[in-house]
Amino acid sequence: MTTHVTVMPEQFTLVAYDANRIAAIVRDLASLLGLSNPMAVEVDERTPLSKMSAVVAGTSSDHTITLRLQSGALEDTKHLTNFSEAHARRSLGQVMLRAKDRLRPDFADAPDDLALTNAQNTAWDVYCGGRLDRLGLDPIQQGYRYDFRNRFGFSDEVDCVFDQLWSADDLGWHDLPTVP
């Protein structure tokens, strides 16, 4: 069954993005991740930043998942204002993995994405990054490692926690590391 996907805006004016192409990527990723919920993608094209969030209306498979992305999250950084398929797959894959996590009971305590602290956000991103890597979406591990060090510290111990998080596949919200 094909996942129902809507993308807003339908026509982009400040960036050269195509709503149909974004929808196709979301459908493909949903199939890859085993997500059958309806998806509503909202892209803020007024900003070049790349913040992302997922809002899950409920935990059943017919509840709509809303994905909100700033335009930079889908952008070709070599050709600004142009769309990058690879970047979009990594960004959408990451935010959809989060949404999938939120469907699990052991993520019920997770605050809304926009209410997460920087450290919580980064730890969850790393947990998603490792899984994206194993799905073949080719995230840059060193980038995630640097983000993690910036939030948790530059030490061998922190690197060990990163490695565990990166290789994990079945964690709950309370398994994610917190700032000491």
Binding site: T77, K78, H79, L80, I140, Q142, G143, Y146
Partner: peptide, 11 residues
């Protein structure tokens, strides 16, 4: 490299 950027990643 330390920060996780690839050469030519940005314009």
């Amino acid at each position: 490299d330390w920060m996780g950027t690839e050469i030519g990643q940005f314009q």
